[in-house]
């Protein structure tokens, strides 16, 4: 049984009397010990999908319209508040993009980590355990650092504290929502190395959300690419990077400059990312797609397995 199985998830945001579909028929599975990357641009629904795993999207304005989120076989969408409290920060832990906004500025970091321990492993809510966790995430001199306030630490160190806090409950799944976007590249390399190392040592699964395709190759076993609320391609990471199948994935990979390439001109994707409520009918990528056919404007393609383990949402996936 997979650790997490999101099946045909549909989520609307209610705005006035309109209801806007932000997540449309998204299915993702994560096995134990696996790292899955969720890639997409702003507004594609990747964060909302990830937050849904612990039902952290406020309802209203959101509304779950359909689908299931099976965590260890139990549907999160049907859980009671008490059950949810157990999985939030317990089975599933989160780290976010901006650690300085996620930490409480008026509490010492040691106390904030201990708070997570009290909730999920009360017998271990001690200074020794906090120090062990800080050591685990590579914070030097943790004995003196537990008395620090968040503002006394750098961005990279704050993100390490967030990771320590997330690990306090020994989660089965760590959801990392753009964990390195706010950090410099050298610090990003440190944090990614740390995540890989912790995954190996603790045997947890990671759902890593990013817009940076470069991170995918270093981190992921499998990748799901999202566009305008839908998964458009899902593949083993190396296959996807070597030979993307969906026109959007291809275009995205061609539009980022690579180090030491002799490219004179980038191949830009025309137009803009469609905003919520303005998704085109038919295939959502067709107005920007270089290989669009008249058919694409009317027929919404389904996510189909075109090769073993490679799922693509494109009417012409086989002929491209």
């Amino acid at each position: 049984m997979p650790l997490l199985e999101i099946k045909n998830l549909k989520l609307d945001f209610i705005a006035g009397d309109k209801s806007l579909r932000a997540v449309d028929d998204v299915s993702i599975t994560i096995n134990a010990g696996e790292t899955v990357c969720l890639v997409g641009e702003s507004g594609c629904g990747k964060s909302v999908t990830a937050l849904s795993i612990a039902r952290l999207v406020p309802t209203p304005p959101a509304r779950y319209v359909g689908g299931e989120i099976l965590l260890n076989g139990r549907d999160v969408l049907k859980m009671s508040k008490t059950d949810l409290r157990g999985i939030r920060g317990g089975v599933v832990s989160y780290i976010f993009q901006d650690p300085s906004a996620s930490l409480n500025p008026v509490f010492r970091i040691g106390n904030q980590i201990k708070e997570s321990l009290k909730l999920h492993r009360p017998e271990k809510a001690t200074d020794e355990e906090v120090i062990r966790l800080l050591k685990l995430v590579g914070i030097p001199a943790p004995e003196s650092r537990i008395k620090d306030y968040p503002h006394q630490m750098s961005g990279g160190m704050q993100q390490r504290v967030m990771i320590a806090m997330a690990l306090a409950s020994e989660p089965k799944l760590l959801v990392a929502d753009e964990p390195t976007t706010a950090l410099d590249v050298t610090i990003q390399a440190q944090i990614l190395d740390l995540l890989l190392d912790l995954k190996k040592r603790m045997g947890m699964s990671i759902l890593l959300i990013t817009h940076n395709l470069g991170i995918v190759g270093d981190m992921a076993d499998r990748v799901a690419v999202m566009y305008a609320g839908q998964v458009v391609e899902m593949s083993p990471a190396l296959d996807l990077l070597r030979r993307p199948l969906h026109p959007y994935t291809k275009a995205l990979m061609n539009s980022v400059p690579k180090l030491s390439s002799n490219l004179q001109r980038l191949s830009a994707i025309p137009g803009n990312v469609p905003t919520l409520g303005n998704f085109p009918s038919g295939c959502r990528f067709y107005p920007r797609c270089p290989s669009a056919q008249p058919e694409c404007a009317n027929t919404m393609p389904q996510l189909v397995e075109v090769e073993p383990n490679r799922w693509v949402r494109c009417l012409y996936a086989k002929s491209l």
Partner: peptide, 25 residues
């Protein structure tokens, strides 16, 4: 050298070795 090696790469077959710098600026 460290800065360049830290750039995540799209090409999965690249053999570049990552130099991870300790500490912060």
């Amino acid at each position: 050298q460290a800065l360049i090696s830290a750039v995540p790469e799209v090409d999965p077959d690249s053999k570049r070795k990552r130099i991870v710098l300790p500490g912060d600026v």
